[in-house]
Design a protein around this nucleic acid. Structure first.
Lengths: 209, 209
DNA sequence: GCGGTTTTGTTAATAATTTCACATTTTCTG
DNA sequence: CAGAAAATGTGAAATTATTAACAAAACCGC
């Protein structure tokens, strides 16, 4: 059920939810499609179409119920039991991600970090214990970790991905600038910050005329 | 010229270049479309189409000249004079980005960081001086900074974006989880790490059947 | 140097995504 | 209470992005 949602829609639903959570905190009970659209810099039709795809029906003239919509999006994209996540590489980026998530209510729990630096191993950072990369296989299985976020230096990207796959990971989010290869059974998402910056720079350049 | 390249193509060109630079270092002089494709997890046709769009012609049976292609991609996406970049928020994520860029040859130079923490202001991190956010307007103009990368906490996202716009920035890469609004004249790219992680978790969930 | 193989470049086809256009319903205003 | 305004929901059209298919050229082995 709901397996056929477009990738883009999944991304937007996640973003809608975050915007909606902010509205909820402010005490807002209803929201119009064009309000959501404005926050996300997209069109109102796009919002309505996405909500149509997940079968949510708003109220004419009142818009969408913020609380209900948050719950429905949660039903779609969250896993009922929650998903445990590990950070591979407790450098600046790894710690940034941990802090980012700290305190966020979420079905996604960062339950372990891994590093090869002996000074870090055994410590806890923002509530996340740091283990030795050598124990990756054991810890991932013990803690039932399903997703790994790779924030290691590029030269360790390939070997880290291999270790993760061997440990039975189900999804990898790769923030290193080095693309990795994994079996089809592992979902892989790669994001390269340099590419994003180069893209911004490109459009700045061509806008200068 | 070259203003009509699809956004996706721009992103891929940046990625091709990074893969090509690694090949160049290894002494490889030529590469086939299917080799590039494999690294990037896309099809060879896609690669050839992208290169067609930028007017690059390879050699039949020998593939593409690595050096030439790197140069051509540089001509397309880089700005001739280079572009100066600032990091807004010298926390973990800001420092991660600086280290990421340190030593990379690139037309993109991170020339300033900004923060409100007095302990950081006046220091230099990986060669990047940290200034007070209060001096943002002056420094951005003095140093001819065109692009800002926002890595501040979410609650400062809106005000930081406003400051940047006032200082005459031309492009913003927003890594905070809070969407911001800028005039059309400023190119805006937003990236939310939580969305990416939620997306990976979603596809892990639905693959479990 | 001939037949088979490999690779590029490109047109045409397909697929994915977004936008248009508008019917429908609700609320507001006079 | 009639007409105007504002909002949703959605089929159809348009746009954007990807893949298929294949001609043409280059090289290899014999």
């Amino acid at each position: 059920m709901m397996k056929n949602l477009p990738h883009k829609t999944i991304e937007r639903l996640s973003q809608y939810r975050r915007a909606l959570l902010i509205c909820l905190e402010k005490g807002q009970t209803h929201i119009y499609s064009h309000e959501i659209a404005k926050i996300q810099h997209i069109t109102a039709v796009q919002v309505r179409r996405d909500l149509m795809l997940i079968g949510y029906t708003g109220t004419l003239r009142k818009g969408y119920n913020v609380k209900d919509l948050i719950d429905l999006i949660g039903n779609i994209i969250d896993s009922t039991e929650g998903i445990n996540v590990a950070i591979l590489g407790m450098g600046n980026l790894g710690r940034a991600l941990i802090n980012y998530f700290a305190g966020k209510r979420s079905q996604l729990k960062i339950v372990a970090g891994f590093d090869i630096n002996p000074d870090k191993i055994g410590n806890t950072m923002s509530g996340v214990p740091c283990f030795s990369s050598e124990d990756m296989n054991r810890i991932i299985r013990e803690k039932n970790i399903k997703v790994g976020i790779m924030t290691v230096p590029a030269e360790f990207a390939t070997s880290t991905a291999e270790q993760l796959v061997k440990a039975g990971i189900r999804g990898i989010l790769n923030y290193t600038p080095k693309p990795v290869t994994v079996p089809d059974s592992v979902y892989l998402e790669e994001y390269d910050m340099i590419t994003s910056l180069e893209k911004v720079a490109f459009f700045v350049k061509i806008n200068e005329d």
